[in-house]
């Protein structure tokens, strides 16, 4: 049922979409974009991959369970708030490093937070998509 064209196209587009997702994440602080939209982009990439091949293959490509992604994403967001807490200021106090790295820009707890957002969005979207697809398969059986 899966067409060759879709498979080939997916092979090409898949990495591009992931890169674009990263780009959206990084530039989000200064221009429209950010973790949420970036996450949706990455999720679409995997969803497309699943469509072109199979859910199982897509799960393999992801290498982690989608719940683990959600959990880690939440953990990122959670951890990004901790330094401030331990430094005696309230939760979620933003911290910035002074050195500027190429491409990424300044490292900060805020970036960690936004990355967490991205991971959660990917995890959630894929959980839904995969579970739906699997439920459909089962019902057809």
């Amino acid at each position: 049922m899966t067409s060759i064209i879709l498979v080939v196209a997916t092979r090409l587009i898949f990495p591009l979409m992931l890169m674009f997702s990263l780009f959206l994440l990084l530039r989000g602080h200064d221009a429209p974009g950010g973790g949420f939209v970036g996450g949706l982009m990455a999720a679409s990439a995997f969803a497309l991959f699943a469509l072109a091949t199979s859910v199982t293959r897509a799960r393999d490509a992801l290498r982690r369970s989608t719940f683990r992604l959600i959990g880690i994403g939440l953990l990122f967001a959670f951890v990004s708030g901790l330094p401030g807490l331990f430094a005696g200021s309230p939760f979620l106090r933003a911290l910035w490093t002074s050195t500027e790295l190429p491409v990424i820009g300044k490292l900060s707890s805020v970036l960690l937070f936004d990355t967490g957002v991205l991971l959660v969005v990917v995890g959630v979207t894929l959980t839904i998509v995969f579970a739906m697809a699997e439920a459909d398969e089962e019902e057809e059986e």
Partner: peptide, 19 residues
């Protein structure tokens, strides 16, 4: 703040170790 964070952390750890 702690009343929010404690259950949150435990829930996160549960989600990571699903099942």
């Amino acid at each position: 703040m702690l009343p929010i964070l404690i259950p949150f952390l435990m829930a996160i750890l549960s989600i990571i170790n699903w099942g």
